[in-house]
Simulated scan of single mutants.
Amino acid sequence: MDATNPPWGIQWAEPADGALSGRYVAVEPDGSPLRPSRLNEMFEHYTKATGLPRIRLHDLRHSAISYLLEQGVPVPTVAAFAGHDPAMTLRVYSHASDAGLKAAAEHFSALRRGRL
């Protein structure tokens, strides 16, 4: 085992023709695709080993997508990143936050003041 072939898979290499379909990013040491349950096991092992709070890998994905939306990354971009339709991305991952609600109220207040 070395830096180019860590225990969780092979190093990613861009194909010369740029085609990415049919390529696996995460594989077993023998090159076979990682099962989703194996990814969960590995994530749980590393979070426990580092003393991080227990969180499911899926919850981390949800947080990452929600964060991108909160940071103003365009919905179609986040949807493509997540492999979702934009409508589903908004329905599942966007949340009304206190800061967002306050900002919306301030915008309407400024609009009202400007028209009076």
Rank of each mutant, 00 (worst) to 15 (best):
Leu57Val: 06
Met88Phe: 09
Ala104His: 10
Ala13His: 13
Ser94Pro: 09
Asn5Thr: 12
Phe108Gln: 12
Gly18Val: 04
Val92Ile: 11
Pro76Lys: 05
Val75Ile: 12
Ala105Trp: 05
Lys102Glu: 06
His58Thr: 11
Ile10Leu: 12
Glu44Ala: 13
Asn40Ser: 08
Gly9Leu: 01
Gln11Asp: 12
Gly72Tyr: 06
Lys48Glu: 06
Ala103Leu: 06
Leu90Trp: 03
Thr77Glu: 13
Ser66Cys: 00
Gly18Met: 05
Gly22Ile: 04
Phe108Gly: 12
Pro74Asp: 00
Thr50Arg: 08
Ser21Pro: 10
Met42Asn: 10
Pro33Gly: 04
Arg91Pro: 09
Ser37Gln: 10
Ala64Val: 05
Trp8Gly: 13
Arg112His: 14
Gly9Arg: 01
Ser66His: 01
Val73Leu: 01
Ser97His: 03
Trp8Asn: 08
Arg38Cys: 10
Ala80His: 04
Leu39Val: 09
Ala96Thr: 11
Trp12Gln: 03
Arg113His: 15
Asp85Glu: 07
Arg91Asp: 12
Thr4Met: 11
Arg56Thr: 10
Tyr93Thr: 04
Thr89Glu: 02
Ala82His: 02
Glu106His: 01
Gly114His: 08
Val25Pro: 12
Arg61Gly: 14
Ala26Glu: 13
Leu101Trp: 00
Asp17Gln: 02
Ala49Arg: 07
Glu41Tyr: 15
Ile55Gln: 09
Ile55Asp: 15
Leu34Asp: 13
